Computed example of a mutant assay.
Amino acid sequence: MTDREPATTAARRDRSPAASPATGITVYGCGPDEAELFRELGPRLGVVPTVTEAAVSEDNAGLAFGNRCVSVGHKTRITDAALRALRRAGVEYVSTRSIGYNHVDVAYAKSIGVLVENVAYSPDSVADYTLMLMLMAVRNAKTVILRTAVHDYRLTDARGRELRDLTVGVVGTGRIGTAVLDRLRGFGCRTLAHDTRPRAAADYVPLDALLRRSDVVTLHTPLDADTHHLLDRGRIERMKPGAVVVNTGRGPLVDTEALAAALEDGHLGGAALDVVEGEEGVFYADRRHEPIPDGPLSRLHRLPNVVISPHTAYYTDHALRDAVHNSIVNCLRFESGNQRG
């Protein structure tokens, strides 16, 4: 298991392929910050971007007419109907500005003649955030912050733990998982790793052994048929009592119902989650005046030992610039016939 980022990185920018000034790319699901970057970087690379904040759909696929390449965001699922509409508009290549593909059916796209590829961006963005969540979980930061916010400055009943006294298990050692391992060395903690393709300098063990021995388990694998509910009820029950789960990968890596139950009954000591199963339609929206449907997410929110953030680990200025730049570069490589191998 690995996060399987592609070879395209900011370090290869100087070898970006040249493009005709007439080269066009339609950019969907583009927020203001991304739009600014596309309009800055596009002309430098010989690209004319057509930018829309709307996610790609059957209704707006026509914006891609005349362009073989489009760039899409990860926040909204791309339906098969939208893919068919893009293909009718002449699109042959979709660059998703994300590492994961779980918002688009890549196999179906290929079957209708559309190639889908992801981008690389700074692994440090997610790695830094992972360590932040990890520290928040073991230091009971949610309770401390909430109490301080209402001017209750007493010490909490639960003492924090120091990372140097703990064993941290890293599941998935691609670029992000490896960056997490690098950071953990500075804290002096014991580390274990699991991956179907070991690549990092780490103590690799079978997954069940990692779960039994780790005080903190952090997930950095792609989401696919093999890793869906990687932490299912059975594996969660085999985890070390009092252990903490950290997930900055993809929500469905964890069986959320089973996680909530293990937290409620005290088997697990906490969780720090930047991604949650069923986050679609909730994350990236203002729900202050609209109740969240009762379910696993609302159960997790109610727990004092669970930290939740809205899929924001990747969101740094450096990583966003990488994602936009590399999405353009991938499109240009496709246009030039120099596709990734």
Rank of each mutant, 00 (worst) to 15 (best):
A89Q: 09
V106G: 13
V116H: 09
D80V: 04
V47G: 08
T96P: 10
N118E: 13
G90I: 05
A55Q: 05
T79D: 04
A55N: 03
E58I: 06
Y121R: 10
V47L: 04
A109M: 11
V104Q: 09
S111Q: 12
P43W: 11
G73M: 09
E40M: 12
P43T: 05
D80K: 04
E40A: 14
G113Y: 08
N118R: 14
A54F: 06
H103M: 11
E53Q: 08
G46N: 06
V106A: 15
H103N: 12
K110M: 12
R87I: 02
E58F: 00
E117P: 07
V72M: 06
R77G: 09
S71F: 08
V94G: 01
L83K: 06
T96D: 10
A107S: 15
N60T: 12
A64P: 08
A64I: 07
N60F: 03
N102C: 06
A55W: 02
A55K: 06
D124V: 13
E58M: 01
S111D: 04
G90Y: 01
K110R: 15
D80L: 03
D105P: 09
E92N: 06
G73P: 07
R77A: 15
D59A: 09
V51S: 07
A109I: 10
Y93W: 02
T52R: 04
A61L: 01
G100C: 07
R88P: 02
S111R: 11
A81Y: 02
K110V: 13
A64C: 11
N102S: 13
A107M: 11
N102H: 14
N102L: 10
E53P: 04
R97K: 12
S71I: 08
N118M: 13
N102A: 12
T76Y: 08
L115Q: 15
T50A: 15
Y101R: 14
L63S: 08
V47C: 05
Y121T: 00
S125V: 05
D59R: 07
R68G: 03
L45C: 04
A89S: 15
P43N: 09
A82E: 05
V106N: 13
R87Q: 04
R84Q: 02
T79G: 04
E58D: 04
C69Y: 00
I99T: 15
V51D: 06
G73K: 01
D105V: 04
N102V: 08
G46S: 08
L83I: 06
A107W: 11
V91G: 07
A55V: 01
R44L: 11
A109V: 08
V72K: 02
R39L: 15
K110C: 13
